[in-house]
Write a protein that binds this DNA or RNA. Structure first.
Length: 108
DNA sequence: AGACTGACTCCAA
DNA sequence: GTTGGAGCCAGTC
């Protein structure tokens, strides 16, 4: 049994460049559709020097949840995404669903 | 040991 | 369509 945390990290690491997905989607892929909160906790506690593309994980509305955190991570996440070609609306939300990465789901 | 908290999401009323 | 409650993971009090 791979710990939930390890599974989540592995999934996030597989998100293609220039694409985003949601906490719930990651949790669902990890086998627990309701553990979005756990995913959020895990990402919030990532080491500062992690290679993990945590900026490709947003909430289910395409919004950057990092904007509610201290440390100016919000703008940082936006900059990371834009640098990969993801277009954002008002700097807080993914503009188009074509940037979405949810291989198991087609309606978003 | 029990309760509370947080980058969230789903379901029922 | 909006509101409220429940569920999940890991850490802290």
């Amino acid at each position: 049994m791979t710990p939930f945390r390890e599974t989540v990290l592995a999934i996030v690491a597989q998100i293609p460049e220039g694409r985003v997905t949601s906490y719930g989607a990651v949790a669902a892929m990890a086998g627990q559709p309701r553990a979005a909160r756990g995913v959020g906790w895990i990402l919030n506690h990532l080491p500062a020097d992690t290679d993990l593309p945590w900026w490709r994980v947003v909430n289910r509305d395409g919004g950057l949840s990092t904007y509610k955190l201290p440390g100016g991570m919000g703008p940082l996440q936006r900059a990371r995404l834009e640098a990969e070609g993801v277009e954002l609306d008002e700097g807080v939300q993914v503009r188009d669903q074509r940037f979405w990465w949810e291989p198991w789901r087609s309606d978003r």
